[in-house]
Design a protein around this nucleic acid. Structure first.
Lengths: 139, 139
DNA sequence: CTAAAACCTAGAGTTCTCTCTAGGTCAAGC
DNA sequence: GCTTGACCTAGAGAGAACTCTAGGTTTTAG
């Protein structure tokens, strides 16, 4: 398989993308690729570098919380060729807003958590941590 | 139930916390509360305001990605009374770091996504969006 | 007093995203 | 040519976090 012009085995792709071979087969079943994956004479998958690029982008999407379903919609748009760039853009923009919102939410929660940390730190450092305390002074 | 000094029914707590009554029972089964929930003569749950406070904090934890298992560990620490404030602090600090890391990760992904958005925007606005393009120029 | 709304338990079902298994086949090195 | 490791398919299993169901009891409003 190493001789197919630039062709990569599933194991090699797994290595390069950090995805498991199981996950790669799963992604294919879910139609997450931009086109059918080639097969060797023996029936084994042969990926090409563009697939790896796409998977790396998918990793970004996944890491940023995009669902498989949404990635699938994006893949469908790309697969159906030029002409729907507006739709792709809309999808990306919406995801961008989602991520921004998530960051804002996390930042807000972080503040609350940090306050808790600060309070505990004072208690612990002062040794004043006697007496119940926690979710609310009083429990 | 409305007469138990400050006592709240499960429905009232659901309303105040945004959690479903199912979720509240589930949380209880999972030992996520700081103490046993009282029951009315008829066997219905009677919560008090401190429980609501705790649940609101739990919501913060959940929103920031803390697992039920971790919340449970924190609840256990609080339940087992004073003396383990260092452990609670450590748990909170670790969660704080986790959240910070997650924000960093999201921020990095956001940048990549924003670049994609910018590229698509150019393509769409210029009307130059002819020819395939997407995961990588060339597919 | 009675109907309706809210609550109860135990446990099954759901969704999402993989992961693992079983039972083979293919490919590469010695 | 044979062993070993990588790969194949179809489908079951996992775990996280709920959600829903069934069948029954308790509360509340009128």
């Amino acid at each position: 398989m190493t001789r197919n012009a630039g062709g990569l085995s599933i194991g090699q792709v797994a290595e390069r993308t950090g995805l498991s071979v199981h996950a790669l087969r799963f992604f294919e079943r879910e139609d997450l690729f931009l086109g059918p994956i080639r097969r060797s004479a023996g029936g084994q998958r042969v990926y090409d570098p563009a697939d790896v690029e796409w998977l790396l982008l998918c990793n970004r999407f996944r890491d940023s919380g995009m669902s498989i379903a949404t990635m699938k919609r994006f893949a469908e748009l790309v697969r159906s060729g030029p002409g729907n760039e507006r739709d792709r853009l809309a999808l990306l923009e919406e995801h961008e807003r989602t991520v921004q919102a998530r960051i804002a939410e996390l930042t807000a929660s972080l503040e609350v958590i940090h306050d808790k940390v600060a309070t505990y730190r004072r208690h612990v450092e002062d040794g004043t941590a006697t007496g119940l305390w926690s979710p609310t002074p009083g429990r």
